[in-house]
Amino acid sequence: MKKIIIILLTVIAVSFTTSCNESTKTVYLYIYDMKDPFMEDYANAILEYAEGNFHVELFDAQNSQIIQNEEIEEGLENNPDLIIVNPVDRLGAYTIVNKVKESGIPVIFINREPLASDLISYDKAYYVGAVASQSGIFQAEIIDNLFGNNPLNLNEFDLNDDNIIQTVIFKGEQSHQDAELRTEFVQSTLIDLGYTIDVLSIQTADWNMQNAYLLAKNILIDYGEQIELVISNNDAMALGVIQAMVELNYIEDSNLDGKIQKDTEAWVPVIGIDGIHEALEKLENGYLYATIKNDSDAQAVAVIQLSVSILNNTDFISTAFNLVDGKYIWVDYQKEY
C-alpha cells in the first residue's frame, strides 16, 4: 500500500513538473487558403518567426468558411492560448469573435478585416493588416512618377500626347473590399494630383491570372495601341495581362535576352499589387513596371510581436508598429519598381 502511494505521488509530481516545464504557449493559425501564394508566404513567415516564442499549429480552410468553422470549433476544444484567424468570409468573423469570447481566448485577425463593430465587441480581438486604400495611393504615386510628376505636361509615356492617361483597370472582385478600395483610390489619388484619366475599361478578373489573361486578350484587340497604362488590383492578374501582351507582341523581347529594355523594346507599363515572388522576377526582367508589395514579412513580424505581448500579458511595445485603438496594427505597403 505504501509503495503504491509513493509511486502515485511520484507520478503526480513528475507530471506536475513536466506540465510546468511545458510553458511554451500554443497558438492556432487559421489560413483561409494555403493555395493563395501570398497567404502561403505569410503563414510560412509566421511559422518561421514564431520559433522560439511559441508553438504554432497551422490549419488550412481551403477557401471554405464551413471548413474553417469546423477547424476553429475543434481547435478551441484544446484551449489554445491564442488563435490567429485569416477569415474566409470576413463578414462571418463576428461568429468567430462570439465563439472565442466564451472561452476568453484572444484572437488576432489577419489579412481580411472584420467589420469594426465585430472587432469592438470583444476586448481581446485584434486586427493586423495593410490599409487597402494605401496600395491604391502608392500605385497612383508611382504612376505620377512614371508620367513625369507633372500632370499638366505628361512625358513620352503619354503615347498620343493628349495629356490624358488612357488606362485599363483589372479589378480583383466586384464588391470585394480591397478591390473596390484599390480601384477607387488609385483613380481618386491621380485625380487629386491633377491628372486626367480615361478608363478605357474596367475588367473584373477575380484576382486570377488565367481570367486576366483571357480578358486582356480581348481588351488588347479592342483598344490595342491606345493603352498607355494597365493598373491591376494584384500581381496575379498583372502577370496574366503581361502574358497576353507578350503573346500579342505589345511587350516584345526583340533581342531574346530574357529582359525588356524599356527604351529599345516594345513595352507597356503594368502595375500590380502584392509583390509576390513571380511578380518580383518579372519586375527584375523589366516585364512588370512596378508592384506595391503587400509586405507579408513585415505583417508576420507585427503578428508575432502582438502575439508575444498578448501571450505574456504585457503592453505592446514596438519600434516598427503602432497598436491603434488597442486593436489595429496597420502595416505599410512597399513600392517596388
Binding site: N69, I72, E73, D89, L91, G92, T95, N98, K99
Partner: peptide, 28 residues
Amino acid sequence: LIFGGQTVVVDTEKMYLNVNTLTHTRWR
C-alpha cells in the same frame, strides 16, 4: 453554439445541430 456542430435534444428527440455562417450575408 454560435457555430459548429453538436448533438442536442429538442422536445425529447435527439437532433444533430449544425450552425454555419452564410458568406456575404452575416446570416447563420
